[in-house]
Amino acid sequence: MPSEQNYKLVVLVKQVPDTHNVTSDAMKEDGTMNRAVLPAIFNPEDLNALEMALAFKERYGGEVTVLTMGPSKAAEVLRESLYRGADRVVLITDRKFAGADTLATSYTLKSAVEKLGAFDVVFCGRQAIDGDTAQVGPQTAEKLGIPQITYAESIVELSGGEIVVQRALDRGMEMVKCSLPCLLTVVASANRPRPASARKRIEYKLAATPFEYQDVLEKWPEFETVEALEAYLAERSLQIPVWSAADLDVEEDKLGLEGSPTQVYKINFVVLETRDSKEVSPTQEGVETLVQELVQEYVVG
C-alpha cells in the first residue's frame, strides 16, 4: 500500500438561483423575472466537483477546502459542503466583488486559492446554471498558471505526481495524463454526489460566518451574547472564515464591475411568436386530412 499523502485539494463552488425550475410564479406580470422566489441552490455540477474531491481524499489522502465567492447568504453552500465531508470552508465576500464577469471572478478566485497556500488539485463544476458560461474554471487555471482538464469524468489513477483523468467530449472521450498541480472542471455524469451526513449535520449545525451570528442567537438564545457564541464556535472550529478584498492580494481595479471587460447592453425576456394553430382532431379522419394537407403543400412525400 502506498502511504497516504496530505494532498491539498481545493473546491470552488457557487450558490445559484434554480434556473432549471423556473415556475410561472417566478415571472412577474410585466414579463420580468422575480429572482426572489427562485430557490438558491448549490450549483449542481459543483456538487459533482465536491464529490470528486472527497473521493480523491478517501482514496489518496488529503484535505478538502471549499471556497465560494458570493453574498453572505452563500455560506449556506459552505455548510452543505461541511455536511458532506469538507474539512475547511471559506466565504469570499465583498461589495467590491459585485457585478464581476468571468474574468474578474477568476481573478478573485485565483487570489483566494493562492492565499490558501500550496495546493495540488483545484476542482470546479464545469459550469454554473445561472450563466452556463463554463469560463471561470479555465480562466482561474490560466491565472494560477496551471494546466486545466475540462469535462473531467473520472480520476483513473494518481501516481508519481501525475494524474490520469478521463474527459467527456462532445462526441467521445479522451484520457489524459498531467502533472500536479492542475485544475479540473467536473461534469454531471462524473458521479452521484453523496447526500449530507446526518452526523455531520449535527456536528456543523452551528457553523456560521460572523454575518450570521445574530441569526444563530435568535435560534439558540441560550448563548445570550455574540461574544459567548463566538467563543463557543471558536473553541469547536465552527467559525466560517470570511475573506474580503482587503484580505486578498488584489488590485482593486481588477475586481467586480470595474474589472469586468464585458458589459450588459440589454436584456430581453424571451417571448416567442404565438401562432394561430389549426386544431386537428386525434381521430383517423382528422389525421388523414392533416396528412393530405401536408402532401398537398409538399411538406411531406
Binding site: P17, T19, H20, V22, M33, I129, D130, G131, D132, P261, T262, Q263, V264, Y265, K266, I267, N268, F269, V270
Partner: peptide, 20 residues
C-alpha cells in the same frame, strides 16, 4: 453585439466588450 440566452434560457442578453 454578443447575443446569448441566459438564466436558464428565460432571458436573452446582449453583451458588449467596449474597451478590450
Amino acid at each position: 453585439y454578443q447575443i446569448r440566452p441566459a438564466f436558464g434560457g428565460n432571458i436573452i442578453a446582449t453583451i458588449v466588450n467596449p474597451r478590450t
